[in-house]
């Protein structure tokens, strides 16, 4: 790893992430109302999904998204819709306790 401009790569990574989430927002706006204070709830949700699936794992993020999405939908259907996030956080607690690197993540070298 010689000759790579780390700052440039960081900027590029950040830009790629922002582009992805921009595309996601473009599709999401068809389904949900978008307001300026929308941010923190979805930031936390994305955070939970990535931690559950595994940090730095592409299939993990997909698996986490499906898992959390289905959990929230079923939780809202079978219990109170406003309490659906409780199940999400319960899953997050269990994953953190028993598999902190996430379901598909690799254990980082200590």
């Amino acid at each position: 790893m010689v000759g790579l401009d780390v700052n440039r790569l960081y900027a590029l990574t950040f830009g790629l992430g922002a582009a992805c989430v921009g595309a996601a927002g473009c599709m999401m706006v068809l389904l949900v109302d978008v307001t300026p204070p929308l941010g923190p709830a979805y930031t936390l949700l994305a955070f939970v999904i990535v931690i559950t699936g595994g940090l730095g794992s592409m299939p993990g993020a997909l698996l986490g998204g499906v898992l959390i999405g289905v959990t929230e939908a079923l939780g809202g259907l079978l219990f109170t819709p406003s309490a659906k996030s409780m199940f999400t956080f319960a899953i997050l607690v269990l994953v953190l306790l028993f598999r902190p690197q996430g379901i598909l993540g690799k254990r980082a070298a200590p």
Partner: peptide
């Protein structure tokens, strides 16, 4: 369970949010 560093921070958020939604209901 050896949850340390940033994972500990996430765990505390998870418990806090879990309890917040619980008390909401």
């Amino acid at each position: 369970f050896g949850v340390a560093g940033v994972y500990f921070a996430i765990l505390t958020i998870a418990f806090g949010e879990f309890a917040r939604i619980g008390f909401d209901h």
